[in-house]
């Protein structure tokens, strides 16, 4: 059951990610990204990270992507024009793409630290555990991240205002 669910939602995630790149209209791409977020949430849930799954949905799918869609609708961005198909370009690009993927996979496989196989539901990551980890072990990175986000918001406000 777990493996089946994993396969289904991993396939949806990959499919949505491909669709995200291939679609020409920004709204379709944004919605594909929501699909990726949603299936990632299910994958977190399968690993036992129920809190993470819920937050993934609330924050990414429910807040950030709403803003994406909002901005796309506000600017009324149309679909981009498809470039005319060129055989030569595709013929060069495809082998290059596979080479890059192969090199990346090799580097990752050889350099990444050896870890154990992931087991379904192996992690206990409820709200209590996540909160405790955030506010004790990882307090400094957590606070620094929030300051970073604050600076980003300030930057956005400064850029958005014509004159202060």
């Amino acid at each position: 059951m777990d493996v089946l669910l994993f396969l289904i939602f991993a396939a949806i995630a990959v499919g949505c990610a491909l669709n995200l790149v291939l679609q020409t209209h920004p709204i379709s791409s944004a919605l594909s990204l929501i699909g990726v977020m949603g299936s990632l949430a299910v994958l977190y849930l399968l690993l036992g990270g129920e809190f993470l799954a819920a937050v993934q949905l609330i924050v990414y799918a429910g807040a950030i992507m709403v803003l994406f869609v909002f901005v796309i609708m506000l600017l009324n961005a149309g679909g981009e024009k498809k470039p005319s198909k060129k055989v030569l370009r595709t013929a060069v690009a495809l082998p290059l793409l596979f080479t890059l993927a192969g090199v990346a996979a090799y580097v990752l496989a050889s350099q990444a630290p050896r870890t154990e196989t992931v087991k379904f539901g192996a992690y206990v990551a409820g709200p209590y555990e996540v909160g405790k980890a955030l506010f004790t072990t990882w307090l400094l990175p957590f606070e620094v991240t929030s300051i970073l986000i604050l600076i980003a918001i300030l930057g956005a406000v400064v850029l958005a205002r014509k004159e202060i």
Binding site: I58, A61, G62, V69, F70, M73, G126, P127
Partner: peptide, 20 residues
């Protein structure tokens, strides 16, 4: 166990129906 978070997630996704 995360019932209330589940509800928040669903309500935050609910905006897509209207927006789209």
């Amino acid at each position: 166990n995360i019932g209330i978070l589940f509800l928040l997630a669903l309500s935050s996704l609910g905006v897509y129906g209207i927006a789209i």
